[in-house]
Design a protein around this nucleic acid. Structure first.
Length: 651
DNA sequence: ACACCTTCAAACGTTTGCGG
DNA sequence: CCGCAAACGTTTGAAGGTGT
């Protein structure tokens, strides 16, 4: 394992010490990777290394220059090539210099007690966290100088992408060394030496919840060594979510405990329970008090806002049973029994109703051109392998027959009168046309429920028959490959398409719920909910997307559908209720010393205490045990965590 | 119960670039 | 010219949440 470590920097720095001032500290990591091969090299080789470094430097500078330029066109093809980290780095500016009054206000409160800050996305939650972090780290430096045990601050996020983003923001705003941890560091994780080094180098970390949890479990760090916990999107703290598990380790009754700052746009995200109870549960879980600000406090920042909220009605949709296309029938006859295609068939049937027959057929066309088809074919072969050979052949033949059907099918253009598009799509087209042609909107986000819908709509609005001048579409969806769908997007793909949207290369984004959290596009001034918005949090979050002075929020509701209307009204009133609750004075809902109800903490007691001092919960103990065994390395028979953990999970 | 969404980690596969 | 290793992408599995 030790031979896989990254070679030390010294060799390299010596070789290039003619230009040390050009070495930006934040680039160290990349450098190490780029020139990691630099070892004890003969002169000639060293010169070559120098040259490579020079080239790398130049390349890097070109990229930085390009990033700072507002020159879209020439960057278009480059964008895909730059690493995720680079992409995010170029887009952050220094924000800490100019805090607003309400931010100072909330910061003061967070300084004195555990707080959950409730603010709309885009109104600078991160800035409050940065202020608090700076303060805590300053105190920490003093403490360390007077000989106290060193402590570390953690900024906990939920997604890897946010980890990059927040790290970029924090490092560009604070002078302190901040590390970044997420699950991608395969070799280093589980190596105590690595962590010791990390802790000595950095005073704060941005990390995903999971990784912090495993660190706590393995005893690399304990709660007593932490001075600050910042939870991004804190409303996730519930049930057995990683946030909640971290909080289980939190010493609730001691004085010397980490300060907590939760940040969220809306403290609850369920629609069934009473919002007040849910919000109080959250306060209990996080041992914190909810704090927010009134509209007046937001002041001029929001006064000139001209919000319009509208509901668009569309004609009742066709029954999926009656709108099936001929192509669908043909394919269904062919592979209807293949479970691999069930999802596709189901979606296509719905699509023919919700989006229109043209889209439904188009779906198959896109599916066939994608590699998806080949994959499904291969999977069909694998799945049926154990069965009868005859069955297997039969299934494979059906798949390839389907391919032929799709290939031979005549895919016409969209009909002139749009009769093969659904009323919903036509309405959406009208709204978008209005937005881009008359309002001259800059950016628009359309939220949909399913990923394939986003994919299809993106394709649809690129068709010449229907496209709107000046509108450039893209889509953004999550990255679960396993769910059988033509549409897919890796983490990098998400970042790239979001960056393009921010920069204006695309100005209309079709997105699933991934985009509801975390992203922040200031220019965005139109938000459309294509599928019904079902819960209060969706309503708040998607409204919070936009913070342009004139801003349009459109919800699409089926006309004469009483259920839709009621659902929407419920979400709206819940959102209103929640707002009122948060703005009530804290005294009205005081949680006395966080007397935690027993049922909230019923299975929190730690059952094992490791030598390193980490309390283990039952849920983590198996993994830990498996790891310990794999560390022992019994003659290579059990070398992988997974093997061991599978063994134990059978017990 | 089920289908849908999300996440992370680990295991594979493929490309690319370098050195012998 | 060939072979190896790093980087990157893809697939799989397990977990969690939500809502009908």
């Amino acid at each position: 394992m030790s031979d896989k470590q990254i070679p030390p920097m010294e060799d390299y720095l010596q070789a290039t010490d003619d230009q040390p001032e050009l070495v930006d500290a934040s680039e160290d990591e990349k450098q190490k990777k780029d020139v990691g091969q630099a070892q004890k090299a003969p002169i000639a080789k060293r010169r070559k290394q120098d040259m490579q470094f020079q080239q790398w430097l130049e390349k890097n500078q070109r990229e930085v220059l390009a990033a700072s330029r507002e020159d879209m066109g020439s960057r278009l093809e480059r964008l895909e090539k730059i690493s995720v980290e680079k992409l995010l780095k170029g887009s952050t500016e220094r924000i800490i210099a100019s805090p607003r009054e309400y931010q100072i206000d909330l910061y003061e409160r967070a300084k004195n007690e555990n707080t959950i800050v409730v603010l709309d996305t885009g109104s600078g939650k991160t800035l409050i966290a940065a202020l608090l972090l700076r303060r805590v780290l300053e105190v920490e430096i003093e403490n360390r100088a007077s000989g106290y045990m060193p402590k570390t601050a953690f900024f906990i996020v939920e997604k890897v992408a946010l980890c990059f983003q927040q790290h970029a923001v924090l490092t560009s705003n604070l002078e302190f060394p901040i590390g970044k941890i997420f699950g991608d560091m395969k070799g280093e994780i589980g190596d105590p030496e690595f962590w010791r080094q990390q802790f000595s180098e950095n005073m704060a970390f941005v990390c995903t919840a999971q990784t912090l949890l495993s660190m706590l479990g393995a005893g690399f760090i304990s709660m007593s060594q932490i001075n600050l916990l910042v939870f991004d999107e804190a409303h996730h703290t519930k049930k057995n979510h990683a946030y909640a598990r971290i909080m289980e380790a939190y010493p609730r009754w001691e004085n010397e405990r980490p300060r907590i700052l939760g940040m969220t746009a809306s403290p609850v995200d369920s629609s069934k329970a009473d919002v007040r109870i849910a919000a109080m549960d959250l306060e209990e879980m996080l041992c914190s008090k909810i704090a927010t600000i009134s509209d007046e406090a937001l002041g001029g920042f929001r006064d000139h806002r001209d919000e319009t909220e509208r509901t668009e009605r569309y004609e009742k949709l066709e029954d999926p049973q009656h709108s099936k296309t001929q192509l669908w029938e043909a394919i269904s006859r062919c592979i209807g029994s293949n479970p691999q295609f069930k999802a596709h068939l189901g979606f296509a049937k719905d699509a023919s109703s919700v989006l229109g027959t043209w889209c439904a057929d188009r779906y198959w066309q896109l599916l066939a051109t994608n590699d998806e088809m080949a994959r499904l074919e291969a999977k069909t072969g694998r799945d049926t392998l154990e069965l009868d050979v005859f069955d297997s052949d039969e299934a494979m033949a059906a798949v390839s027959r389907t391919r032929d059907i799709i290939r031979d099918h005549q895919f016409g253009p969209i009909a002139k009168d749009w009769s093969d598009l659904s009323s919903k799509v036509k309405t959406l087209h009208g709204v978008l046309e209005n937005a881009f042609c008359q309002r001259l909107s800059k950016r628009c986000i359309v939220f949909v429920e399913q990923r394939a819908t986003a994919f299809l709509l993106t394709d649809l609005f690129q068709q010449p028959e229907i496209s709107i001048p000046g509108m450039r579409v893209a889509y953004m969806i999550g990255s679960n490959a396993s769910s059988a769908n033509a549409a897919n997007m890796s983490l990098k793909g998400q970042v790239v398409s979001l960056q393009k949207f921010k920069r204006g290369e695309t100005n209309c984004l079709f997105a699933t719920s991934v985009a509801e959290e975390g992203i922040d596009v200031p220019e965005c001034d139109v938000v459309i909910r294509f599928d019904l918005c079902v819960s209060a949090i969706q309503y708040i979050q998607s409204k919070g997307r936009a913070r342009q002075s004139s801003f349009l929020y459109v919800t699409m509701v089926e006309s004469n559908n009483i259920y839709h209307h009621r659902k929407f009204q419920q979400a709206k009133s819940a959102a209103f209720e929640l707002q009122r609750f948060c703005r009530a004075l804290p005294e009205d809902r005081k949680v006395e010393d966080f007397d935690v109800r027993p049922d909230v903490l019923k299975d929190c007691e730690s059952i094992i205490t490791t030598a390193a001092g980490g309390g283990l919960k039952l849920i983590d103990s198996l993994a830990c045990l498996a790891k310990w065994i794999s560390d022992q390395d019994y003659s290579g028979s059990i070398t992988k965590n997974k093997t061991a953990s599978k063994m134990f999970s059978r017990l």
